[in-house]
Design a protein around this nucleic acid. Structure first.
Lengths: 226, 226
DNA sequence: GCCGTCCTCCTACCCGGGTAGGAGGCGACA
DNA sequence: TGTCGCCTCCTACCCGGGTAGGAGGACGGC
């Protein structure tokens, strides 16, 4: 009844870390390791793991294609994707490829262990940091386009957000809104916390990917053309 | 034959700076100042300036609307827009509003003087830092979409650029490409120089605004849906 | 009245990003 | 053969961005 794990990651340090972490658990056993995608496909077939911890970025064959091939081979293995950062386009691609879950490498250890047990049990799981964004993303196309998680942001935070997305620095935003740059910083900290983003760059990406301020753009265009 | 100038800027320091700068020129005379858009429209009508130095961001009425009103009043004045940063959507709006030129506040003084004389003479002028981007922008829609100024970037720089646009940090980009983060920094410095951008945030904005890596996105989508 | 939210501003601190400048290896090309 | 562009890596430095934490004022609901 032990959970058989295959660890696929190109960095040996990461693999060693997982051996260490999983070695202390009685119900989990690392049955094999792979340092690239091809190896992962091969060893998945040979060792019949319950769960494959799969890094996305690997030489030879990336984790996405490896996931597809393993699942196409009618393997019983569940794939748990590992990634370093969360604003990754590949997240969506990986889920469509059939991955059962998604965790960040810097999630706390207990969370990683919990994730392994959950997907081994047949359930799906996303790292909390990723969940919200994925849901918004997948529910966006079908529905007319409900304003993303933006309702949480205050009016002022939205003001700041719009200027961030236009590439302005904090000082410039302050000038534009007639507030100090320390206040701008305060707003930005709140924005990033609420949206679970790391920095303004990710905020810009999110805005464009979700079409956040499209109305603003068209409003601008209309004013121009009028 | 002197060039009559109206300075419209909400910051008195900026206005003082221009008085100082222009006071030394024999062929230029500052005939009036305005601290907001409404005042600018009013004084343009009363003082009949040759050139209006117009800040975009002003209380009461912004520089764009002020520009439209002045020109709508059938005034002979030429409008020279002042701005602090260059990746500004308003650039395009201002040009459509009828502005004769565009300069950055931190352009060298000689350049500002030159700009005033040029627009006073009836010609149009853009700050060099802005020119390339505007041209690309306005020639983008008509033509099928020639790869923007990107031909200048090397393959490796494009690799890095794509990852920047996905919100990755330098360290993450390094991991992805199997190079050190100092190398990543080197590439990014070159990218920013070539594209005349200030930081990675502006690079992301530029990429999305010009639809730079759309092929990549659709390629991803195709791989997903296949 | 009081409480909570929002907006504003501040200090202090750390870190990642960007600049400057130099250096070596490599392949293409004349 | 030399040279040039590209890629790689480095040190050293500065500065803007982000965090932590506190504080005060305005406003509205309870």
């Amino acid at each position: 009844m032990t959970i058989r794990v295959l660890v696929a990651d190109d960095q040996s340090m990461v693999r060693a870390g997982f051996r260490m972490l999983l070695g202390g658990e009685e119900d989990i056993e690392v049955v094999a390791e792979a340092s690239n995608g091809l190896e992962a496909v091969d060893k998945a077939a040979r060792f019949d793991p319950t769960v494959v911890l799969m890094d996305i970025r690997m030489p030879e064959l990336d984790g996405l294609e490896a996931t597809r091939r393993i699942l196409a081979a009618d393997n019983a293995a569940r794939i748990l994707i590992l990634t370093t950062f969360d604003l990754d386009e590949y997240v969506y691609e990986a889920l469509r490829a059939g991955a059962s879950g998604f965790v960040l490498k810097d999630d706390p250890p207990e969370q990683l262990l919990g994730a392994i047990r959950i997907v081994a049990g047949g359930d799906a799981l996303l790292s909390p940091a990723i969940t919200k964004r994925v849901i918004k993303r997948f529910t966006r196309i079908p529905q007319p386009a409900p304003p993303p998680q933006l309702e949480e942001l205050t009016e002022r935070e939205l003001d700041v957000f719009r200027l961030i997305v236009r590439g302005l620095s904090n000082a410039e935003i302050g000038q534009e809104l007639y507030i100090s740059d320390t206040t701008v910083k305060t707003h930005i900290t709140h924005i990033l916390q609420k949206l679970e983003l790391r920095d303004r760059v990710q905020a810009v990406v999110l805005a464009y990917e979700t079409g956040l301020f499209e109305e603003d753009a068209s409003a601008r265009a209309l004013r121009v053309d009028h």
